[in-house]
Simulated scan of single mutants.
Amino acid sequence: MKICVGAGPRGLRGFSLIELMVSLVIGLVLLLGAFQFYSALSSSYSQMRVLGDRQHALRFIVDVLSEDVRAVGRKGVVSNEPDVEGSRLVYKLIYSPSRKSSFYCGAGEDLDALDYVFDPDDGTVGVRPTCDGVVSNGGAISVIVEGIDNFQIVSSPYADVAALIRLSFLELPSEPEGAGSFRYVVANRDAVLGKVEVSTD
């Protein structure tokens, strides 16, 4: 019996070194393309998530702050000159008469004042309620929105009946300048109705 080593049927040869190198290069190019696609997709998803969070935060603060300003009352005050507490800016809403049934206070308590506190160091906006003449939670601030670059309550052209709110989010790397800035006007319902004269002609 004869054993042949290294000989095989005709046409059954292995790959040459050049063929292996070419196939490795093609595989690496395909792998790099897949990695680039995944990286772009991941970055896009991350940015969309941040934009979604920003939209949710904007919607929340617009709804909450609008309701708070509208409920101030005809004799109430919306300060547009902030008090300064360290690096924090405090905008006061003073209710006159006191606001009934507010979720900021406990059962049976009335809301006398509400401080909106902007902390530029943390990029947060929070609230600090005063219920029945006592600052709630020992003066602790409840953060309602994060990721804020600037927050202001300023005089509007209708300062006696409305407040102008300016709000800026921290900019995203690929975002044009100013794309994260918003402003809106909130009217004090009772003050507006007090300005309207009803004629009975």
Rank of each mutant, 00 (worst) to 15 (best):
L32W: 13
L24I: 14
G106T: 09
A107E: 15
R49Q: 14
S155N: 13
R183P: 01
G6N: 15
L164F: 04
G138I: 11
I18A: 09
L93I: 12
P9K: 04
I144V: 06
S142N: 13
R183D: 10
F37L: 15
S87Q: 07
V29C: 14
R88P: 00
E197Q: 14
G138H: 08
S156Y: 01
V77W: 00
M48D: 13
F37I: 05
G126A: 10
D132I: 04
S96M: 08
V154A: 12
E85T: 04
G108Y: 05
E177I: 08
D115T: 03
G6I: 02
D160L: 11
V117P: 09
A140G: 03
S46T: 07
P129A: 11
A71N: 08
V135S: 12
F169L: 08
L93Q: 06
I26Q: 01
A191D: 01
L172I: 06
S102E: 10
F60N: 05
D53W: 00
H56Y: 00
M1P: 08
G106Q: 13
S39Y: 07
F103H: 06
L58M: 08
A34L: 09
K100E: 14
V134W: 11
S42A: 15
S66Q: 02
S42H: 10
E177R: 06
S79Q: 13
L31H: 04
V135M: 13
I141E: 14
V186N: 02
S66H: 05
D149K: 01
C4N: 11
L31W: 13
G194V: 01
P129T: 06
A140F: 08
L12W: 10
L20Y: 06
L89G: 03
S23R: 00
D63Q: 14
K195H: 09
P176Y: 07
S87E: 15
G180H: 07
R74Q: 14
R74K: 07
A113W: 05
D190Y: 05
N80K: 01
H56F: 02
S42Y: 05
V198I: 12
E19Q: 00
D110R: 00
C105E: 06
N188H: 02
G76F: 10
V154G: 00
S168M: 07
L65M: 14
I94W: 07
L167Y: 04
G139N: 03
